[in-house]
Amino acid sequence: MLVMGEVHTALLQNSGEIQEPVCRQVLGLMAGETVRVSRRPIAHALSPDLLTGVDCRLPSASQARVRAVGTVVSRCAITGGRVAQGSSYVRVERAAVDRRLSWSHYLSRPGVAEVLGKAKAGDLAAGFLDGAPPDCLDLGAISGRFLDLAQSSPLLDRRAPFRIPRTRLRWVTEVGEPSIRFTLHSDQVRTVRIAHPEPFTPALAALCEDLALHDWLLTTLLVLVERAGIGSAPGAQAAAKLAPAVDHLLHLWMPGAHVGESLAPYWESLDRRPGFTRQWRTLEDRVRDQVALNTLTLLSITAQTGRRCQ
C-alpha cells in the first residue's frame, strides 16, 4: 500500500569528528553483524537493521480505526564522523486474514506491518504526515531511541562544539508517477512525499535519510550564520562564531552521495526548486567572506602596528 518512515538527525555528541574504527563500535548494535562503511565520496557508516514489534492503530486523516501488526526496521547512521541519524520505516500492507496471527508470521516478513481490515493508502499517508496522535504508531519515538543509542555511546565525549536541536523528517512513499514534495512544517519538522513507479526498495529509505541529512546541514548552517549576527556584531566576534561552521560543517555537503543512480532525479528536481544546493553555496560564500574579511582586518592591524613600531 505505502511505506512510511521517520528520520531524526543531530550533531554527534562529540567534540571532534570520530574516525572509522570508533564509528564501527558506536554503530555495532547487534552481535555478529557488520557495520557497513563507505569512504567515498564521504565517510558514511550504517548500523545493522534492527526490528521493533508493533501492534497498534495507524494514524489516519479521517480518524478511521485502522489496526496494524508487524515490525518496523530501524538503523543508525553517522556521516563524516560528525552527523548522527536514527531512521525507521515500515511497509504497510493488507493482511490476508483479519485477525492477529502468531508472531512468527510477522517475523517471516521483516519490516512489514499488516493492516487488519480496510484502509485507504491516501488516508494513512495524510494522517501520518500530519503527525500521529498518541495512541497510534510512533515511528518518531523509535527513531529517537535509535539516535539516543548512538549518542549515548561511552565512546563519545559529549562535548559537542555547538548546540543545535534535532530535526525530524517524516516520509511516505507510494507507487505512482514520479514526484517528490518536500514541506517545511516547523523549525524541526519536515515531511517528504514521494511517488515512485517501481515497488519499494530500501534505496528509497536511503534517499530520505540523505534528504534529512542535507536539510539538517542547511538548517544548522542558517542558525549558525544567524547567531553570528553578521553586520551587527564586530567582525572578529562574527568570524569567531562562524568558526564551528568551517571546522565541522562546510565539507559535509554531498547531496545524493549514497543515493542510487535511478533515484538521483528526485534529488536533482529538489535542487532545481527550491534549490538546496544554491542556498547552501550562498551561505557557504557568506561564511568564507566573513572569515576572509576578518583575516584582512587582522592583517591590516598587524601591518599598522608593525609600521608604528619601526
Binding site: V54, C56, V69, D138, I142
Partner: peptide, 8 residues
C-alpha cells in the same frame, strides 16, 4: 508485542 504497542 501486546496489542497497543505503538513503539512510543
Amino acid at each position: 508485542p501486546p496489542p497497543g504497542t505503538t513503539g512510543s
